[in-house]
Design a protein around this nucleic acid. Sequence first.
DNA 1: GCCAACGTTGGC
DNA 2: GCCAACGTTGGC
Length: 134
Amino acid sequence: MNYWLVKTEPETFSWDDLVKKGEDIWDGVRNYQARNNLRKMKKGDGLLFYHSGKNPGIVGLAEVSRENYPDPTANGGDWSVVDIKPVRRLERTITLKEIKENPLLQDMVLVKSSRLSVQPVTKAEYENILKLFL
DNA sequence: GCCAACGTTGGC
DNA sequence: GCCAACGTTGGC
């Protein structure tokens, strides 16, 4: 089981939208690194659901419900999507600020390469994030 | 709204 | 294949 962080602008697609829909296709990724990460995802992998923009931070836990298949929104081009479904909302938002301030989380891709929209997260990082609100 | 970081494009 | 120009992302 692997862990990932997926970013979205809440104005475009938020955690609440995902909960409302119950399941959603994670489409529109047009970055090779992000796409390659999508392709490595296995059903049941854990996802940290991250809101960018105003008050950036992790708001919920989700999981991969369907492994990668071709992106129906791509006009040609070799792009992939996965389906994801919500697991639960976090008790509170884990802000980018506190992630940056936490010595245990300094190696997260989020801290080092903030623009990548689909990122791998280590098991240790995932567990350390859970500890922040459990 | 600004700007730094990064990815992509295209001329040579 | 290099690199300048440009576009986009996303934090602040």
